[in-house]
């Protein structure tokens, strides 16, 4: 959908705003809700965060219509963010035994000594 495309007489910015407001309502509502399950919290953290982040970056910041080097500039630091999150996973109390094998080194030399 380009910058000038319209749906029901409204442009892409308007619909992006509506989508963002909907997910914000969902997010804020979840915070006010008592006793929300842990899985739902993670779902909101990741899924809603990604949807809202995409809406803001792609449409409001126009990255969708920019050439690839602006997108690369924006995406580049997220490599380090991912590395930091991986580091957190490895170094947390469950990093040795609690993480799936695909994202942790073989710690057997440490646990079996």
């Amino acid at each position: 959908m380009s910058e000038h495309a319209e749906f029901m007489g409204k442009d892409v910015y308007f619909w992006n705003f509506i989508v963002l407001m909907f997910f914000t309502l969902f997010e804020v509502g979840a915070v006010f809700f008592e006793g929300i399950p842990k899985a739902t919290v993670w779902g909101i953290l990741i899924v809603v965060g990604l949807i809202k982040g995409f809406g803001i970056a792609a449409f409001f910041m126009h990255l969708k219509d920019e050439h690839k080097w602006f997108n690369i500039t924006f995406m580049f630091p997220w490599i380090f963010v991912a590395l930091m999150l991986w580091g957190i996973g490895l170094s947390n109390p469950e990093g040795v035994t609690g993480l799936p094998s695909w994202c942790t080194p073989d710690w057997s030399y440490a646990t079996e000594r």
């Binding site: 997010e27 915070v31 953290l45 982040g53 803001i56 409001f60």
Partner: peptide, 13 residues
């Protein structure tokens, strides 16, 4: 705004 999208659920939820 994008930074708040991360901060809000991380600290409030």
């Amino acid at each position: 705004d994008l930074a708040w999208v991360v901060i809000f659920p991380a600290f409030y939820l």
